[in-house]
Design a protein around this nucleic acid. Structure first.
Length: 286
DNA sequence: CACCATGTTCCTTG
DNA sequence: CCAAGGAACATGGT
């Protein structure tokens, strides 16, 4: 499941598995995920290239590769969309349903699978150019966050999903951070008090950081699950219990608030579900 | 059949 | 021009 923490854990998992491996062959089963890149461009660049590094930027994965015939390293940008997964499979296993791209690496193959095909695997790095600051970097300070909110009449929950404000927050952690900060999701972004703004800033770091720690402690085993690994795929798979139990408000409409027992409410903002505690995150809540 | 789903982008409206 | 809202994308689960 792909918000910042899940992408971070995936990057850490894949990095050592890919480092130093040479791509023998590229199969594109769904050209749509290449975005502006053509199949021949991808094959030309990747076939013969060697994986060097991998890092995360917002919800994007950035692969660094060494070209086949010398030259400067180049990058491939990946995004999991809503349902994307990336893992290594033994070459004898069949490609899973909805495989978008597969890279032959010798005995194994790297698979990008994406049921809904909203994800990306592309040479076009344009998307990451417009991202806002990384919430877990030291340079992301409360003052900067609060000033970026100034003047906005958009609900704060909706504002948090704008990747230019802060990179990496998605629909789940937006609700979680607002709950932790005790900020009403419908409050206009520019109208948060100084204290609310500061609490939200701190809650974002806390919630994302905690999710990374939780994800990092769970053993990842992608190779023997037939491509149905669901560790971070919300609502299914091995990690479901663990994952869902960590969420205090998301997808818990009607359940008692862990802090006060009031039933959690679900509302719709900008066409997406928001979950919150009407008491803890109410107007007069402190 | 209806509605819901972790994300991004495009189009329309005000 | 800008901000905000809604729909589209594609597939599957309930």
């Amino acid at each position: 499941m792909p918000e910042l923490p899940e992408v971070e854990v995936l990057a850490a998992h894949l990095r050592p598995l890919l480092a130093g491996k040479r791509i023998k062959h590229v199969s594109v089963l769904r050209p749509k995920v290449l975005g502006l890149t053509t199949i021949s461009q991808l094959k030309e660049q990747l076939e013969g290239a060697v994986f060097q590094g991998l890092h995360r930027r917002g919800k994007y994965l950035v692969f660094t590769l060494q070209p086949k015939s010398a030259g400067r390293p180049f990058r491939v940008v990946g995004h999991l969309g809503m349902t994307g997964r990336m893992f290594l499979l033994s070459k004898i296993e069949p490609l899973p349903k909805h495989t978008a791209v597969a890279l032959e690496l010798g005995n194994e193959r790297f698979v990008f699978q994406d049921t809904r095909y909203f994800g990306r695997f592309t040479l076009d790095a344009c998307a990451i150019q417009h991202l806002g600051p990384e919430p877990l970097e030291e340079s992301w300070v409360a003052e900067g966050f609060r000033s970026a909110l100034r003047g906005s009449r958009q609900p704060i929950k909706t504002r948090l999903l704008d990747q230019r404000l802060v990179a990496g927050i998605g629909n789940i952690y937006a609700s979680e951070a607002l709950f932790q900060a005790r900020v009403p999701p419908g409050l206009a972004a520019g109208r948060l008090t100084r204290a609310q703004g500061h609490r939200l800033w701190a809650a974002i770091r806390e919630v994302l950081g905690e999710a990374i720690r939780a994800g990092s402690t769970i053993p990842l085993n992608f190779s023997n699950m037939g491509g149905t690994n669901g560790l971070f795929y919300f609502g299914s798979g091995v990690g479901k219990g663990t994952y869902h139990e960590r969420l205090l408000v998301y997808d818990r409409a009607g359940a008692p608030c862990v802090a006060c027992g009031t039933p959690i409410k679900r509302i719709v903002q900008a066409n997406r579900s928001t979950f919150y505690c009407p008491r803890c995150q109410g107007r007069q809540a402190r």
